[in-house]
Design a binder for these strands. Structure first.
Length: 352
DNA sequence: GACCCGTGGGA
DNA sequence: TTCCCAAGGGT
């Protein structure tokens, strides 16, 4: 026998146990009249897409310090935004972030729209983010559904249909819980609940404000929800990366194509990444020496790169489409993590 | 709907 | 080590 989950009970829990986050206006501050800044809510929500709070915090602080308002971001160079995003992953988010800032500045007079439909029309804002901004920044009664909410709701109601097929049903169930007032706090409460108590493994049910209402707990196996379809295995691809390094430590870089994998980011030249081991095909004159190998796992494949090193004299000119990045500049380049591993392996071989 | 798109931490 | 997966969006 279970009772129905009560939004008031969750809000009361949130008032006592909510996390303090740099982009969040706490319930006490809000009650005292503090208003959330839509720019900060938007920036944090985009950064938090498929990304942990721990990873986001330093990037959020850096972006806010450098571009305090949406108009500052609209005035920035896209290349600078890409550099500042390097390491956070899913780089189309950075391109869309810039495009969204441009659209808000040009089409909306520098103010974010306050409805789900208008937000949804902006680049990089999908169903989740539109609802989150509408609820958190503008206190609209939008139903916010992310991975946490899907987990909480699937456990509350023992939803047997597997993800992703269950998404519409989970959203309908979540909508039945969303209150007309304090919808923003309610959304954040659901996410805090999922992040701190209703966790993927070993949920802390005795501490949960909804433990009496939870069918998953009553059934004895809440951690088995949500159900998921079996996922395909991750294939391995192989390639060879060529690092030209000058005697002063500068490295030859180029820009990747604007879209697709690591779109718009910088890279060391390499062969194609293919299932079979590729043949040597240096894009530049050698001689090339072995400099170890690195491995990196992307969302949908695992990559093994053999690293080659060529030593170049100081003053060596950069070929068309390339530039020399000095040892001092490397840290600030728009290099994705996999390329930082490649450069690191070359630097190790260079010193030995 | 299926597929593509990063990264790092925890178990 | 290996696997999971975190405040998803675009095409």
């Amino acid at each position: 026998m279970t009772t129905r989950p009560d939004s008031a009970a969750l809000l009361a829990w949130y008032d006592r146990h909510h996390r303090r986050l740099p982009w969040r206006i706490g319930p006490a501050d809000r009650a005292a009249g503090a208003k959330p800044d839509p720019y900060r809510i938007w920036l944090s929500e985009v950064m938090l897409q498929q990304t942990t709070v721990t990873a986001v915090k330093p990037y959020f602080e850096a972006f806010l310090a450098r571009w305090p308002r949406v108009c500052d971001l609209a005035a920035a160079d896209e290349a600078e935004v890409m550099k500042a995003w390097a390491g956070l992953g899913y780089y189309s988010r950075a391109r869309n972030l810039k495009a969204c800032a441009d659209a808000v500045a040009e089409r909306h007079g520098g103010r974010f729209p306050d409805t789900e439909a208008a937000l949804l029309a902006l680049p990089g804002i999908g169903a989740y983010t539109a609802a989150a901004i509408a609820a958190i920044a503008f206190d609209r009664p939008a139903t916010v559904v992310d991975g946490n909410v899907e987990r909480v709701v699937s456990r509350l109601f023992t939803v047997e249909e597997p993800l992703p097929d269950a998404k519409p049903a989970l959203k309908r169930l979540a909508a039945t819980l969303t209150p007309q007032r304090r919808a923003g706090d309610f959304a954040q409460a659901m996410m805090d609940l999922g992040a701190t108590l209703c966790t993927p493994r070993k949920p802390a049910c005795p501490l949960c404000p909804w433990s009496e209402a939870c069918r998953g707990r009553a059934a004895g196996a809440p951690e088995t929800y949500p159900r998921r379809r079996a996922k395909a295995e991750r294939p391995t691809r192989r390639g060879i990366a060529y690092v030209a390094m000058r005697s002063d430590g500068a490295v030859l870089l180029r820009r990747r194509p604007p879209k697709g994998l690591l779109g718009g980011m910088s890279e060391v030249p390499s062969t194609d990444w293919t299932p079979a081991a590729p043949a040597e095909s240096p894009p530049l004159p050698g001689p090339w020496a072995a400099a170890g190998r690195i491995e990196h796992t992307f969302t949908h494949f695992h990559l093994i790169l053999e690293v080659r090193l060529a030593r170049r004299p100081a003053g060596d000119p950069a070929p068309d489409g390339f530039w020399w990045s000095t040892a001092a500049d490397l840290a600030g380049e728009a290099l994705p993590s996999v390329m930082r591993k490649v450069v690191g392996a070359a630097q190790k071989a260079f010193g030995s």
